[in-house]
Design a protein around this nucleic acid. Structure first.
Lengths: 249, 249
DNA sequence: CGCTTACGAGAGCAATGCTCTCTCAAGAGA
DNA sequence: TCTCTTGAGAGAGCATTGCTCTCGTAAGCG
C-alpha cells in the first residue's frame, strides 16, 4: 500500500516535471520515456483486448523486458490501469473542450450538440477506454483521489455551456418549481454551473445522464441489430435532451 | 466451440424439461439440481466479488468437487456467465413487470415511475448482476442468441406502458415532426410499441436511455460524493424524462 | 575514483481456466 | 438378473497470470 502510492506519486511527479522543465537528470528522462512506452503499449493492449486482457507480462514481453522489471515503474496492475484511466479522462475531456470551443460562444444549442457528438465519437473510437472510465468499475479497483481533476473535465465543459446559456437568457426558466429537499445535493453541480438555479441544474443533470446513457448503450452493444443510423438517432435524442434542459433550439 | 454450444444446449434443455414435466430420470434430476447449485454459488460469488472474481475453481471448492468436474455442467466460464446473465435479465424483467402490474392500468405516469423505481432498486441491490447485463461487455464474451427473449423483458414492459398511454391519448402528439430518415431504425421498437407513431417512439427511446443512464451512473459510482439523496433525485429526473416522452403528469 | 542506488534478470509462489485420462457406478437393454 | 454403455467425479498436468524476493551490474553522484 505504502510502496504503491509512493511509486505512483513518483510517476506523476516525473511526468509533471517533464512537462514543466525539460526533465532533470538523464536517469529521470529515460525513466519517463520508459514509463510512457509502457502506458502506450498498455493502451494498445487495452484497445484490442479490453481491460480484462491487459497483462503486465504481455506488456513486458512486448518491451523485451522480463515481467518483474515492469514493477519498477508501476507497482501493480491497478496502478497501470489508473494511469490509463487518467489518460482517458483527459482525452475525453479535451475532445469535449475542443468541440465546444470550436463553436460560436453564443450558439448554445450548437455547443451542446457539438459536445455531445464529441463524447460519442470519442467513445465509439475508444470503446475500451470509454468502458474503463464510464463502464462497470473494475473489481477491487478504487479510483485514487488524484484522478478527480481529470475526471471532471468533460462535465465541467457541459457546465460552462449551461452556465453561459442561462446567463444569456437562452434557457427558459422552469415552469414548475424545482424538486424539494435536494438543495444539498445540488452543491457539487453549483460549482460547475455558477449562477444557475437549482431547478435548471437538475434539468441539466438529466440531460447529462441521458447523454451518457445513450453513449453507453451504443458502446456496450445494446443497439446492435436494433439501431443502425446511430449518429442521426443520437443527435435527435440529444435535441430532445436539450429541450428537457430548457435550451432553446 | 462445437462442444461448448451443444453442452450448453443440453443445460437449457434439461432446465426446460424440469419446468415442464417433473423431470425424467433420476439422473437428470440430480443433474438439474447440481446445475442449479452451481449457478447459486456462482451468483453469490458474483455478488461479492464481481464478474472478474467469478472463479470456476472456487465454485467447485465450495461444492466439495474437484475443479474439472464443473466442466461436466458448464463447458467454460463464459457459459456459466451466460447462465447468470440470462437469470439477471429475467430477474430484472420480472421486477419491472411486477411493479408495472401493481399500478392502476390507466395511471400511465404512475406505471412509468414504478417501473423506473423497480429497475433502479433492483440495480442498486444487485450491482454486479446489473453490471453484467448493462455494463461494459466482458472481454471476448458474445451473448448467444438464446439470451434475447429474456433480454427484452424489461424494455417490453416499458413498451407496453408507452403503447397503452398512447392508445388512451395520454401522450401529447409531438409538436414538431419526427426525425427524418430513421424509419428503418424504428422498426425494432414498433414491435414493442404497436400503434405508436415514430416521433413518439424516439421520445420513448430517449426516456429509456435516460433511465438506464441514470441508473448506470449511480450503480457504477459516478454519483459517489456527489448526490446523496438518490431516490428523490432519480424520481425527479424520471419525471423530466416522462415529460420528454410527452406523458402527461 | 569509489560508493550508492536504481534497474533488470531470474527463479519462484499461488492461483486461474481448461484438457486429458482413468476409474467407477448408475442406468438401460437383453 | 446380467451385461454393457454412458455419465460423472478424481487427479495430474499445461499454460498463463499477478506479484515477491534475491542477486548482479551499471549508471550516476559526491
Amino acid at each position: 500500500m505504502f510502496v504503491k502510492s509512493s511509486a505512483l506519486d513518483f510517476w506523476h511527479r516525473s511526468d509533471n516535471l517533464l512537462c514543466m522543465t525539460a526533465s532533470r537528470t538523464a536517469r529521470e528522462r529515460v525513466r519517463a520515456e520508459l514509463t510512457r512506452e509502457i502506458t502506450d503499449i498498455a493502451r494498445r493492449q487495452l484497445a484490442t483486448e479490453g481491460a480484462g486482457g491487459l497483462s503486465l507480462r504481455a506488456v513486458a514481453r512486448e518491451m523485451g523486458m522480463v515481467s518483474s522489471a515492469i514493477y519498477r515503474y508501476f507497482p501493480s496492475r491497478d496502478d497501470l490501469l489508473t494511469a490509463l484511466i487518467v489518460d482517458g479522462y483527459n482525452a475525453l475531456g479535451e475532445a469535449v473542450e475542443q468541440a465546444d470551443s470550436a463553436c460560436p460562444r453564443h450558439d448554445f444549442s450548437g455547443r451542446w450538440l457539438a459536445a455531445c457528438h464529441a463524447v460519442r465519437e470519442w467513445a465509439v473510437t475508444h470503446p475500451h477506454e470509454y468502458a474503463l472510465i464510464y463502464g462497470s468499475p473494475v473489481p477491487g479497483y478504487q479510483a485514487p483521489q488524484d484522478t478527480i481533476p481529470a475526471r471532471v473535465r468533460d462535465v465541467a465543459a457541459y457546465g460552462r455551456i449551461v452556465s453561459d446559456a442561462w446567463e444569456a437568457g437562452a434557457i427558459a426558466p422552469p415552469s414548475g418549481e424545482g424538486p424539494e429537499g435536494l438543495e444539498p445535493d445540488a452543491g457539487s453541480f453549483r460549482e460547475l454551473m455558477p449562477g444557475v438555479p437549482d431547478a435548471v441544474i437538475w434539468q441539466a443533470v438529466s440531460a447529462w445522464t441521458a447523454l451518457y446513457g445513450w453513449v453507453s448503450f451504443e458502446v456496450f452493444g445494446q443497439f446492435n441489430n436494433v439501431i443502425e443510423n446511430r449518429r442521426t438517432t443520437f443527435e435527435h435524442a440529444m435535441r430532445l435532451a436539450a429541450a428537457t434542459m430548457g435550451l432553446a433550439q
